[in-house]
């Protein structure tokens, strides 16, 4: 379907036992979808596979369809161009010695930062940011957890991905900051027409913001994971 991003026929074996068996997700574009399940059900593993983590999952099978393109889950570099994962420990994503503005500028570096290109700090910030009262010239380590999570989201968006994956973005945040993050996420999804898949345990927090599907991972008796 042209207005959806579909993940199909995902198979993964771990220690010779099936881990994912014929997993399928279809996500409507421009919506916030959720992926839920018990601890250890493989939510983070699925996100890593989609992100194109070749170090741990070189034997995965499956396809991701982006409208006209079908990309195998083994084409890691292609996946990395289109899908961004913001990790649970979002501070890994940030250079906290530098300011909000500088961190966004770092997204221009490319795979091999050039010794000849000078860094530009005049990055264009989305209008939605004005609502959130963030001092963009302050070192990131002095910002609150919610503000840092917003920065990591913005940095992810700078690469113009087609799909953003968020692994428990509000796990370490208080309710106020957590709500702020989701409000920002919704605003950015609306502005940029992004597709987002979020892993989040807090159904009460997530429910008002979810505009797409809720995918649940369940573990079958044989140990394989299945997505509904």
């Amino acid at each position: 379907m042209k207005d959806s991003i579909c993940v199909e026929n995902v198979h993964l074996f771990m220690n010779r036992a099936p881990f994912f068996q014929n997993v399928r997700l279809c996500m409507k574009k421009g919506c916030l979808h959720s992926l839920t399940g018990k601890n250890g059900s493989g939510k983070s593993t699925l996100l890593s596979i989609l992100k194109g983590d070749h170090t741990n999952f070189s034997n995965v099978q499956g396809v991701v369809s982006f409208a006209e393109h079908r990309i195998s889950l083994t084409m890691f570099k292609e996946l990395q161009k289109r899908i961004i994962l913001v990790p649970q420990k979002y501070d890994l994503f940030l250079a906290d010695q530098f300011s909000f503005r500088e961190n966004l500028s770092f997204m221009d570096f490319g795979t091999y930062p050039s010794p000849l290109k000078q860094m530009k700090t005049g990055v264009v910030l989305p209008k939605v940011l004005e609502r959130f009262d963030i001092d963009i010239d302050r070192p990131v380590r002095l910002l609150s957890g919610g503000q840092r999570q917003i920065l990591s989201l913005l940095m992810a968006i700078q690469k113009n991905p087609e799909l953003i994956l968020l692994d428990e973005p509000t796990a370490s945040l208080d309710p106020i900051n957590a709500k702020m993050v989701f409000e920002f996420l919704m605003a950015i999804i609306d502005e940029k027409n992004l597709t987002c898949l979020v892993v989040c345990h807090d159904e009460e927090l997530l429910q008002p913001f979810r505009t797409g599907s809720d995918f649940r991972i369940s573990v079958l008796k044989c140990g394989a994971r299945h997505v509904e």
């Binding site: 990395q80 990790p87 501070d91 890994l92 994503f93 940030l94 250079a95 906290d96 010695q97 530098f98 500088e102 770092f106 997204m107 221009d108 570096f109 490319g110 795979t111 091999y112 930062p113 050039s114 010794p115 000849l116 290109k117 000078q118 860094m119 940095m155």
Partner: peptide, 28 residues
């Protein structure tokens, strides 16, 4: 002031940054 210069400083601040953003930390 260049991209590489900032990358050196980023490495000292957060060596994991590069892996997250598909920048070659080996190169840096």
């Amino acid at each position: 002031k260049s991209h590489l210069g900032y990358s050196l400083a980023i490495y000292g601040n957060n060596p994991h940054f590069f892996k997250q953003h598909a920048v070659s930390d080996r190169y840096v």
